[in-house]
Design a protein around this nucleic acid. Sequence first.
DNA 1: TTGATGAATCACATATTCCCACATATAATC
DNA 2: GATTATATGTGGGAATATGTGATTCATCAA
Lengths: 268, 268
Amino acid sequence: MGQTNRIPLARERRLEILADLEDQGAVRVTDLAERFGVAEETIRRDLDKLCSEGRLARTHGGALSIRSQRIDLPSSVRRNEHSGEKKRIARHALSFIEPHDVLALDASTTVLELVCLLPDMPLTVITYGLDAARLLIDRPQIHVISTGGELDSKSVCLLGPLAEATLRQFTIGKSFCSCKGVDLERGYSEASTLQASIKRLLMQLADRTFMLADHSKFGVRSMAYSGNVQDADVLITDEKTDKTLLKSLEQAGVQISVAPSARQQIAG
Amino acid sequence: MGQTNRIPLARERRLEILADLEDQGAVRVTDLAERFGVAEETIRRDLDKLCSEGRLARTHGGALSIRSQRIDLPSSVRRNEHSGEKKRIARHALSFIEPHDVLALDASTTVLELVCLLPDMPLTVITYGLDAARLLIDRPQIHVISTGGELDSKSVCLLGPLAEATLRQFTIGKSFCSCKGVDLERGYSEASTLQASIKRLLMQLADRTFMLADHSKFGVRSMAYSGNVQDADVLITDEKTDKTLLKSLEQAGVQISVAPSARQQIAG
DNA sequence: TTGATGAATCACATATTCCCACATATAATC
DNA sequence: GATTATATGTGGGAATATGTGATTCATCAA
């Protein structure tokens, strides 16, 4: 009846490899050859084919998931404007995170870049973004808590009173968030009142709030305001942001931290 | 099972092929040719025809089900491929859902199959499974609410007091869930106490509970019990489940609903 | 730097599977 | 019964997939 060990089709094997890659982040030629009972050369040909299709990144001895590019997250991260700056800002923000921190993260694409970079270390992460939670599954040392809430399909996150009530239940050490716009006088703004509301809460509840805003956010006023510029303790931005603007913000009491440019980052 | 002595017609054979594909995710030309006692070329023509109808994906040496191709589905759904029963049970369960229902869904793979099949219609869905929520994003008519909770990386869901507290806040019309095991005397069981606890709650809170359990679940006793067999109002299972067992369950007061077999379903 | 080790590459052999044209068989229609 | 239309079987060359072994390359540690 049930033929248990059916020899998989070539295509099936490749799909399995991709699935493995998604689960584990990396695969080795030797392991795969043994697992499927085929020659290593066959696996190499599989990997090369998948690589040429852009579905994985080839390495010596195996392959890596293109997770770093986040291709499996449809809308949110992939077509991400200014992703270079966001990534650099995220990397810079990493340096403010220490073991055993209790973090609250928003659902912005910038913070999602930060999540991708988070190493597996003892942390508690509270978030209302579905993708952030999903991404942290493979980091066993990170204790992840998701708020409840009503699913916002546009930004793939959980909003509303339920989400805010959940957040209030926690003592939050550091919160990392981004925004739609920063204006010296009017403060931070968001695309909807619900978004603004939860972001305001995030800033209120955390001991320290880190606002991640690339240069394109400055001078922008979006629909709903979530707080004054002073409501964030540290504002992390990139080198393209106008220096005089940053001076004014510093005078307003915001600590400014500028992520190094691509060149500096590589050099350092 | 009912093997007629008549040589199957082409149409009938193709339905069988599709049924196989549903069950196993992949078929190979050689196996099918042998099974039906026809030339391989005949099977190839079958597959080509079904492929041109978009009902399967042709590969070298055989064919893959359409679904196993879709990389955008969460791995939990794709990896679940080898269980056609779950899919059929899910399809059957669909018939119990009506517009404007308020549903609570668990995070099992069987229910995830149901989520994949859910049409875009006016519904409220409350769930503690991340993948269920993520999948429903592209159904604008469905109002999705996620519970909060601590991320359980094994089953990709949110558990704990936070999750249960969220559930209690809602009036739930129908709940759909699955289980690790069903035993006539001991009832439904789960792999962990946390899982059992939230499932118990799901059954308590809903006006009607639908338990989705394929034949492999019967007679199984997993670690933690979540309720008596009577705690579910309707038990949906497949044709392979022992009929006398089902009779006993009916006598215990559980309404039984059997999903049609693959051939019946595809033919219809 | 220099081996040592494992991996990648390449060329070649082999085995499957596919494709196509053609022949045959079966069913449906008039 | 004759005539289509549909299904199926057959055979050989083409395409694909896989395995093998020799050689080159990459990486890392001493």
